[in-house]
Write a protein that binds this DNA or RNA. Structure first.
Length: 852
RNA sequence: GGGUCGCUAGCUCAGUUGGCUAGAGCGCCUCGUUUACACCGAGGAGGUCGGGGGUUCGAGCCCCUCGCGACCCACCA
């Protein structure tokens, strides 16, 4: 390959990826001595497209993976694809709708097959997109969440739970979406604060007294009164003490219901009397349990009133029924006013339908013992969290967790392996013959549960399912995922893994925040502000997207997407490309036999030292998941140090073996952050072998620290000189004179080259003249004409003043006995040194002032 | 009701055990056609780190408090 003038990512990325993939570089090595490093990718939706959040996920995970691969670890990055039960089902149901069909036109098994085909038509898409993002994952071990090994593990777990009595079937209130006709776990319900009304309704006492003829209840949902079974008052409430145990007549019905005493009734809220509708309210359900009250279901799974609501209301939607009830109450004289309130209402996170709490038989996981164990392990610090505060948040959540409903009334998912005796509804058995709708056991017929598992029940087991073929990778090294999945996924993985494996699922957790749009708004289709990562890839390249996404981003914090960071990153890729182009030119032009790899000038020791330090620093940063800082460091090394100083100085004297070696090291260090451009370069350079992805993280150069430091001094001198030159009128350059200075003497040509000065003469003390540089330890003069020099007087005076202040500060610090006493000795010594340097400089500047 | 996070340069944000001159990218201002790169080079301006108090020799960082903003959890009828 030849180097074109600018790096055009689109020309290389696909080929480079194919090269890696074909070579088997993504497979874990079977080196038994190496450390094992494993990341399981959060499986993207199999039938969906990747969004920008996936871009960030892959960026972070792939940086870690490539870094560890370069470090020689046995590295296994396991990709996945999620059947995404409910998500996909919603999409498919919409598709059915477009064909004027509904789920009720087919059997569950037919629907399952249809969705299976639907998903598999789309599936390749997502995988291609992962490739475009550069994910160096082991495609041979891609796991689909409906693969046989997933299903069988889920069944094993279900059976274990079942036998341990941690899974039970119960008729409880569940969060039900009447549009999607399925129940949800608590965590899947979106709560929104809404304006509502609190209506007051009179329930007449059956045996009125002179003082009290009726009891007034307050409710936000009048339609549920048709299912009332009691009125609760607080046992300590003086107002109602005497009527506890009496009955009231439930308006609009012929029923009489009791007044019960229960702590649930808050004396200070509303009227202090609460109507109890156990079939449609969680609190009421609990009250009913305590008082052994019946439960009357008046709202059906279709969201319409049932026959139990009475002929007058049966079949109405809850909304219409509410109007009707209010109207009827009004007409019959039971209304006692209303007030506007704000209250929280649960909604379906997908369609926004108000979630109905409905009574339904479902499978529940008794999470208490699981959560307890998880809390212990978390408190013991067995899993490190990044950011650290997420651990606390998770513990807080686990401490208040309620049982987990794992049944879903949708066909797309893993069938629940449970069968019910057709002659005895209480007789349930575990059996994994889910391909049959009915089975016979001991002459009894059992019918399969029609429900499927909550997707998260299987996802919660993901780490040990995906690593089952090579268990030395379990627990995995780090779970990297979105901060929004802390409870939904991370917490459940920990619980399930502790339960089935007796071990944590992963050693570390890294959670990233959301990628917001450029204005800091959440991206959503409806807002039309969605950024497609593949568009960015085709415009700026995959590496630019990766570097741009990780820039200035810290763990767990939502942050806006920044196209300027992407562009800056694209520019960096172009920079390293052009550095390499020049390096190749230099190598081509210098065909004489290769000399030894050694440092022959200060700048060479310096760059080796810088690479050594940066390499160390980046390892430290990546080991602690500080991606943004690591990325910054790469940028700074490549651009501000390697290109601006080393490469520039090499234009004077070329050390070809060192150019080759340092470029290689830099490409290796940069590779995790910008895999495509670095590999493309590696493939293009004439002297490199094999593939960059398989190289070893660089070993430190032997450097002469003194020489490296001397070059640092040169940088300071040259920068200072440049600054003066720029400030001079007409952009003129003048000779740079120095007195008795080995560093200056040895580097005259370099200084001249880098400052574009006409000459860098050595002079004698008596020849002093011109502008003195304010550099401690050196006597350097810009030989500018006297008239120009005169203009510097004011500036010089200002500098002297500033320096004087700095000296005062240092002196004050040293005069403080507590500082000298308590601060570390090195620090105090450093302060002394600084003071001495500054005082020396001040003296020289004062001398100069007299010269002008 | 419980909990979490944020407030640092014009903008978007970094800043790990407190250490002395607080950083980056973009933007802004000067200068520059040096054949690696204008997706460039050189230089520069710009910050009382939300307010107040405290701990400390020393605080952007720790503690208290106030203000503003964002988010999560939760059964308040």
């Amino acid at each position: 390959m030849k180097f074109s003038k600018a790096y055009e990512p689109n020309e290389y990325e696909t080929d480079v990826y194919a090269l890696w993939e074909k070579s088997g570089a993504f497979r874990p090595k079977s080196n038994n001595k190496a450390k094992n490093y494993c990341i399981v990718m959060p499986p993207p939706n199999a039938n969906g497209n990747l969004h920008i959040g996936h871009g960030l996920t892959i960026a972070l995970e792939d940086i870690l993976i490539r870094y560890h691969r370069l470090k020689g670890d046995n590295t296994w990055y396991i990709p996945g694809a999620d059947h995404a039960g409910f998500e996909t089902w919603v999409v498919y149901e919409r598709y059915l709708e477009s064909k004027h069909k509904t789920r009720f036109d087919y059997s569950r098994d037919e629907l399952y097959d249809q969705v299976w085909n639907f998903v598999h038509e789309q599936r390749g898409n997502m995988e291609l997109q992962l490739r475009a993002l550069g994910a160096s994952c082991d495609w041979d071990s891609l796991t689909f969440t409906l693969d046989p090994k997933v299903v069988s593990t889920v069944y094993d777990t279900f059976e274990k739970f079942y036998n341990d009595k941690l899974i039970y079937r119960g008729k409880k209130l569940v969060n039900f979406c009447t549009k999607h006709q399925t129940a949800f776990a608590d965590i899947e319900v979106t709560h929104k604060e809404e304006k509502g009304k609190l209506w007051r309704i009179a329930y007449p006492l059956v045996n009125p007294t002179d003082d009290l003829k009726e009891i007034i209840v307050a409710t936000t949902r009048p339609e549920t009164m048709l299912g009332d079974v009691a009125v609760a008052v607080n046992p300590n409430d003086e107002r109602y003490k005497n009527i506890i145990g009496q009955n009231v007549k439930l308006p609009l019905t012929n029923r009489e219901i009791p007044i019960v005493a229960d702590e649930h009734a808050d004396m200070s809220y509303g009227t202090g009397a609460v109507k109890i509708t156990p079939a449609h309210d969680q609190n009421d359900y609990e009250v009913a349990q305590r008082h052994d009250l019946p439960m009357i279901t008046v709202i059906g799974f279709d969201g319409r009133m049932t026959d139990a609501a009475g002929d007058h209301y049966s079949g109405l939607t809850t909304e219409d029924c509410r109007k009707q009830v209010l109207k009827d109450l009004e007409e019959q004289g039971y209304r006692r006013g209303e007030e506007n309130i704000l209250h929280d209402v649960g909604h379906c996170y997908k369609c926004d339908t108000v979630i109905e709490p409905l009574l339904r038989e479902q499978w529940f996981v008794d999470v208490k013992p699981l959560a307890q164990k998880a809390i212990e392990v978390l408190k013991a610090g067995k899993i490190k969290f990044h950011p650290a505060n997420k651990k606390k948040v998770l513990i807080n959540y686990l401490e208040n967790l309620r049982d987990w409903n794992i049944s879903r009334q949708i066909p797309w998912g893993i069938p629940i392996p449970a069968f019910q005796n057709v002659d005895d509804p209480s007789d349930w058995i575990y059996d994994n013959r889910v391909d049959q709708t009915e089975i016979e056991i001991n002459g009894k017929t059992y019918r399969r549960d029609e429900d499927t598992f909550d997707t998260w029940f299987s996802s919660a087991q993901w780490p040990y399912i995906t690593t089952s073929e090579d268990q030395k990778f379990f627990p995995t090294s780090v779970m990297e995922t979105g901060a929004d999945l802390l409870f939904q996924w991370v917490g459940r993985m920990i619980m399930l893994s502790l339960y089935t494996k007796g071990d944590v699922p992963f050693k570390d957790v890294y959670m990233h925040g959301m990628v917001l749009d450029e204005k800091g708004q959440k991206m959503s289709k409806s807002k039309g502000n969605v950024i497609n990562p593949l568009d960015i890839v085709s415009q700026y390249g995959s590496d630019a997207l990766r570097l741009g996404l990780i820039a200035s981003r810290s763990a767990g914090v939502n942050q806006a997407f920044s196209s300027s960071k992407v562009i800056a990153s694209r520019n960096l890729c172009n920079k390293i490309w052009n550095i390499s182009r020049l390096a190749q030119q230099i190598v081509d032009e210098n065909t004489s036999p290769a000399t030894k790899l050694e440092c022959r000038s200060l700048g060479e020791d310096w760059i080796c030292d810088e690479i050594n330090q940066t390499s160390k620093e980046i390892q430290k940063l990546l080991d602690s998941y500080r991606f943004a800082e690591a990325g910054d460091l790469v940028y700074d090394l490549v651009w501000n140090r390697y290109a601006d100083w080393f490469i520039e100085s090499q234009k004077l004297w070329k050390n070809v073996p060192l150019i080759q070696s340092t470029l290689e090291q830099i490409l290796i260090i940069m590779h995790p952050f910008a895999p495509f451009v670095t590999e493309t370069i590696w493939q293009s350079l004439s002297w490199t072998d094999g593939m960059l992805i398989n190289q070893q993280w660089p070993k430190a150069y032997k450097v002469d620290k003194t020489k490296a430091d001397q070059f640092r001094e040169l940088i300071a001198i040259i920068t200072n000189i440049r600054s003066h030159f720029q400030a001079l009128p007409g952009n003129d350059r003048y000779p740079i004179a120095f007195i008795d200075d080995q560093l200056m003497y040895d580097n005259q040509l370099l200084i001249q080259h880098l400052t574009k000065a006409p000459s860098v003469p050595q002079i004698k003390i008596e020849e002093i003249g011109g502008l003195r540089l304010a550099i401690p330890g050196h006597n350097i003069y810009l030989q500018i004409p006297a008239d120009i020099h005169a203009k510097y007087k004011a500036q010089l005076e200002e500098n002297i003043l500033k320096l004087g202040n700095e000296i005062n500060t240092l002196e004050a610090r040293l005069r403080n006995p507590k500082y000298v006493e308590r601060a570390p000795k090195e620090l105090v010594e450093e302060t002394h040194n600084q003071l001495a340097t500054k005082e020396d400089l001040l003296a020289k500047m004062k001398d100069e002032l007299e010269l002008i």
